[in-house]
């Protein structure tokens, strides 16, 4: 029936356990009292209108608050059993978490170096190994065919859609345990979006994915379970299908999915 994501029941395969998470920017509360579990190897969708706290949630998972002076995070987040507030080497944590933000960022390096950056930071030096990683990640991000002949040109000068796929390739090059995708399809055409979505379904075998999306149908296509954020609160956590066959508990969730607001 309706799964409200109760903490204890499925503890063994919980990847990320979030408890009473509250995020503030100065006096503005971006997210209030969120408690949820993200399970191993699932695609966890988060839907909701703009400014409902979705992106802040992802930033908290990645401990980006350390780089943002006015961002304050309360509550606890456990990642694979580690309380991320107590981890001593945050860089090691972030290396395990791949992030794709809505605005594409091609770093001002060559396309090759963009994708090879994370492996290099991890100490991969051999050209042959890097070549393999770069090709695999670009393939998966559906970019390889377009750029394989100009890997030396600047990643920051690609088109918006290409840069977005480059960003995805970069996130994959980290070989992450957890992949955070924030409205990744905004700058990408529908055909490419479908190709990437296919890749994500495949990737589910290896990584846990958190998918923030403003497209309800995308959540339906991909997410196993979905949370609905509204006005800084988590209103609903349920199997994605539950939103569409009326099994969700909060009437606002169904209204949103059916397009009555947002």
């Amino acid at each position: 029936m309706v799964d409200v994501g109760s903490p204890a029941s499925v503890a063994s395969d919980v990847k990320v356990a979030v408890r009473d998470l509250t995020i503030r920017y100065g006096s503005h509360v971006a997210l209030r009292d969120v408690t949820l579990d993200i399970r191993e190897n699932e695609i966890f969708g988060i839907i909701g209108p703009a400014n409902s706290g979705k992106t802040s949630f992802l930033r908290a998972l990645n401990r980006m608050d350390t780089f943002t002076t006015e961002m304050a995070v309360d509550g606890s987040i456990e990642f694979a059993g580690h309380d991320i507030n107590k981890i001593k080497n945050l860089y090691a944590l972030r290396k395990r978490i791949g992030v794709v933000f809505p605005l594409p960022v091609g770093l001002p390096l060559s396309i090759y170096d963009n994708v090879a950056l994370a492996p290099r930071l991890n100490g991969v030096r051999k050209r042959s190994e890097l070549d393999v990683i770069v090709e695999r990640c670009l393939q998966r991000a559906a970019l390889w065919d377009e750029v394989k002949d100009r890997l030396k040109s600047l990643g920051s000068l690609l088109s918006g859609g290409q840069q977005q796929r480059l960003t995805i390739a970069r996130a994959l090059s980290q070989d992450p345990d957890l992949l955070l995708l924030d409205e990744f399809s905004i700058a990408v055409d529908p055909v490419t979006t479908m190709r990437i979505e296919d890749v994500l379904k495949e990737l589910k075998q290896e990584v846990t994915i958190v998918l923030v999306t403003n497209l309800v149908q995308q959540a339906r296509r991909l997410a196993d379970r979905t949370a609905f954020f509204l006005m800084s609160e988590c209103v609903e956590i349920a199997e994605t299908e539950a939103y569409f066959d009326g099994r969700v508990q909060d009437p606002r969730s169904r209204d949103y999915v059916e397009g009555r607001f947002g």
Partner: peptide, 16 residues
């Protein structure tokens, strides 16, 4: 700033 954030997200240290 977006370039820095992209790097930090990959686990690069500030200095890297």
């Amino acid at each position: 700033q977006a370039f820095r954030e992209a790097c930090w997200n990959m686990g690069a240290t500030r200095w890297q």
